[in-house]
Simulated scan of single mutants.
Amino acid sequence: MKKIFLCGALLGGALLANAQNTINVLNIKSAKDLRGFFAWTGKDMPFISGHRGGVNKGFPENSIEAFENTLRHTPATFEIDPRLTKDSAIVLMHDATLERTTTGKGKVGDYTLAELKQLYLKDVEGKVTSFRIPTLEEAIRWAKGKTVLILDKKDVPFEMTAAIIKKHKAESHVMVTVHSAKEAKWYHDRNPEIVFEAFVKTQQALEEYEAANIPWTHIMAYVGPDNKPELAPLYANLNKRGVMCMISTAPTYDKLPGAEERAAAYRSIIEKGASLIEADRSIEAADAIASLVPAESPKKKFFGKKAIK
């Protein structure tokens, strides 16, 4: 009996260890795959984009550790925030200052990369962790074969953003946030492989992207933070063009006080027509919409699992 119990315990421990060493991944190998992943079909797999990399207890925002923690629970893309250091390196940091998310003080741009690498990151509760500030290059290298990074617009010049994507041949797993058709055209004219998270909050904005000849195959549309009925015609017009739509819950529904209330809000977003949710509460939001994932979808081929060390 003791031997059986011991064997069972060892097997259980091995299975647990195996589960902990497995992450959800997006099987996207090329820019063409990425465009296919974001093409609206009407039978898509709803999923989560982690705002600032996902904001979960013990795992600081904009950290590789936060990305990996989210992927242990759910497939996801990640919206991240590149900022320039004093010596023109690019690190991940939402705020222009260091106090809220690190053990440092002052402006990010007043420190060299080497100086910033001496600091520790804080989690959502302000607790200091053992994690360090990552560079954008570190994140890009880590993300390949695992997920998609969406670069928000902070203080990094467009030229530097375009250059780092080209340097790493990262068009398959790095997207750029653009706030207007003019910004999208700047990137598209220089690198027609780049895919965008584009602000398309109105019919007028839709028409501006169309007039600028930005291919709809290269756009995933951010339609705003509110799940409002007025979005229905915009969803229809974007879906007709093969475009997925996203709502960001970070400034709205993520802040609701109750877990059940938040879960209902996340589900309603997908039920009303959005294809994905950008959430601070990446794991919680993914759990809430899991029941809405269809049993069959042409997008299943993009979702998989991978063992990590």
Rank of each mutant, 00 (worst) to 15 (best):
I247E: 07
A286Y: 13
S282V: 11
A170S: 07
E208W: 02
M160C: 05
I214V: 14
R190C: 09
L206T: 06
H173A: 02
A286N: 11
A288E: 06
E261K: 11
S275T: 15
Q203A: 14
A221E: 01
E159M: 08
M246I: 10
H173D: 00
V174R: 04
L234G: 05
A212S: 03
Y222Q: 04
D287T: 09
E171R: 14
T177F: 15
P215F: 00
K240L: 13
Y235W: 12
N213G: 09
I269M: 14
A250K: 01
N237Y: 08
S282A: 15
E159H: 08
R267F: 00
I165D: 03
E210D: 09
D254C: 03
K166V: 10
I150Q: 01
W186M: 02
N191K: 06
K154T: 02
I194L: 10
E208F: 01
H218A: 12
L276A: 12
A263Y: 05
V156D: 03
V195D: 01
A181R: 00
F158K: 12
N191T: 14
R190H: 14
A198K: 06
F196P: 04
D189F: 08
L149V: 02
I164V: 11
S180K: 01
F196I: 10
P215C: 00
A205V: 13
